[in-house]
Design a protein around this nucleic acid. Structure first.
Length: 465
RNA sequence: GGCCACGUGGCGGAGUGGUUACGCGCCGGUCUGCAAAACCGUUUACUCGGGUUCGAGUCCCGACGUGGCCUCCA
């Protein structure tokens, strides 16, 4: 079977053919580092990690390059820096915010079982590339300088009548619609309402760099140009896959396409555009005002990262997810069973049923159904290998179980003593006492399981619920 | 207002022009002093109204509903 991926640009599922099979290239828009990442931010991280792992499986680890940027220059960062470190010079405060948030982000996504991308470029380290693209766009007649800003003109792009794509092709909207639907006040320096910023002047104290286009005042880049520059630097003028959240289709990705294609005079930027769907929390839109804004870190306090990962992958990446406690409990139960059954088993090759499901546009729900199939047919080595392909089973069973014991804070010796007492009570048929002890343990969150060993003697094991 | 997605059983959630999704739950059984756990088994579906077709939950049209985007929100 071949890999097929849904491409937002062509609106169809197509066979994936890399430009260079020895060098498969993927770019995903990463975080703007100004605050803790929320559970919605975790979705593209997990989804594209699965794709990264699948591509490595198919083409070899050495032949896949995955770039996910870190946006470390942005208004929200500036605001946060001024708020959190009012005593510091702004640039220093900004560095603190981006370093701290970046570290938090890495800790969070590591816990989710996501591999680090091949490269994690920072916007501030690619100002030179941004300036070069801007200069090219001006030279090509696609951009102009006005009042210390540089603006991109979609009108000019569509008037060029060359091999360039049409502006609006990715998000399926025409310039006329955009003009008609524009809700924002148009800045006076814009020649046209649809023009967007490539470069803008910095306010005093803000991060600033020498400007392109002969502009004397120092400035800073617009958001869209960052990704064009970083993708170009690390993946070239054209590459295979570009991913991100569905909300980025317009304007961010539309503008990336415009910048990159006009700068390098080409038909396409990426051959496959992939977008993950949104996430709701308990059937409501996640927002700070509703008070249901939930960070990855908060969830990690209550659940192992792999539970969050499984919960995320139960839904196809393009569909909306309703993130609920009930669903998390279900995911935890499933993973407990898989851990006990397959975690300490040496893996064979991933099962064809699982790989085939992933090959069909990353159909993770179908892959999970295939995992259940392996479990039901008692194929422990196949399940072990398949789960590892999907980024699970990073721990041994003992570590997995121990994590729950640790979190509960109950003394294991005390538990063992109570269980011994109960076993004695049962032996003398004092069931009132044995049930009392069982209730006492249950009150501590300890669930006991009665069984028999190979000699037929009763054995009681326990775990935390 | 404009553009774009989606609507499957108690719940989550795939798939597909004509045969079981799968998981959780429920129910029944085995086991147990009784439970729990485990194991075995069973159950229920395709928003509504038209149309195409020998046949549609699956294709087309419409209605209703939900969600996303509309210049820096994954």
């Amino acid at each position: 079977m071949e890999l097929r991926l849904y491409d937002t640009l062509s609106r169809e599922k197509r066979a994936f053919v890399p430009l260079d099979a020895k060098h498969v290239r993927m770019y995903v828009c990463g975080p703007t580092v100004y605050d803790f990442a929320h559970i919605g931010n975790a979705r593209p991280v997990i989804v594209f990690d699965v794709l990264f792992r699948l591509l490595r499986h198919l083409y070899g680890e050495a032949h896949v390059k995955y770039v996910r940027n870190i946006t470390d220059v942005d208004d929200k960062i500036n605001d946060r820096a001024a708020r959190d470190f009012p005593g510091l010079p702004l640039n220093e405060a900004i560095r603190k915010v981006t370093e701290l948030t970046g570290k938090q982000f890495h800790a969070d996504v590591d816990a989710l079982g996501a591999l680090r991308p091949s490269v994690e470029p920072r916007a501030t380290e690619h100002i030179g590339e941004m300036r070069e693209i801007i200069e090219r766009l001006i030279a090509g007649g696609f951009a102009y300088a006005a009042e210390d800003h540089v603006l991109f003109s979609p009108q000019a792009m569509n008037a060029a009548n060359s091999t360039l794509p049409r502006y609006g092709a990715l998000s399926k909207r025409s310039l006329d619609e955009m003009i008609a639907g524009a809700r924002v006040d148009v800045a006076p320096y814009k020649k046209d309402a649809t023009d967007f910023v490539l470069w803008k002047p910095s306010k005093p104290g803000e991060p600033s760099w020498p400007s392109p286009a002969g502009i004397k005042a120092e400035g800073r880049p617009g958001w869209h140009i960052e990704c064009s520059a970083m993708a170009w630097k690390h993946l070239g003028e054209q590459f295979d896959i570009h991913g991100g959240g569905i909300d980025l289709v317009f304007p961010h990705h539309e503008n990336e396409v415009a910048q990159t294609c006009c700068a390098f005079h080409q038909q396409r930027m990426a051959n496959y555009w992939m977008h993950n769907g949104f996430l709701q929390v308990e059937s409501e839109k996640m927002s700070k005002s509703l008070g249901n804004f939930i960070t990855i870190r908060e969830l990690l306090a209550d659940w192992p990262g792999e539970v969050l990962r499984l919960n995320m992958l139960k839904t196809h990446y393009t569909s909306p997810i309703d993130w609920t406690m009930k669903s998390l409990e279900e995911s935890a139960k499933t993973l407990n069973d898989w851990y006990r059954f397959a975690a300490d088993v040496a893996p064979s090759k991933p099962a064809a049923s699982v790989v085939d499901a992933l090959l069909d546009d990353l159909n993770t729900p179908l892959a999970i159904a295939a995992l259940h199939g392996l479990r039901n047919s008692s194929d422990a080595v196949g399940l072990s290998a398949s789960l590892r392909l999907l980024g699970f089973l990073s721990e041994s069973v003992a570590q997995w179980e121990g994590r729950k014991r640790q979190a509960s804070g109950v003394d294991a010796g005390e538990i063992d003593r109570l269980i011994a007492e109960r076993t004695a009570a049962r032996a003398r048929k004092d069931f009132k006492e044995s049930d009392r002890i069982r209730d006492e343990l249950a009150a501590k969150g300890v669930v006991i399981k009665d069984g028999k060993n190979s000699d037929g003697k009763p054995v009681t094991t326990w775990e935390f619920a």
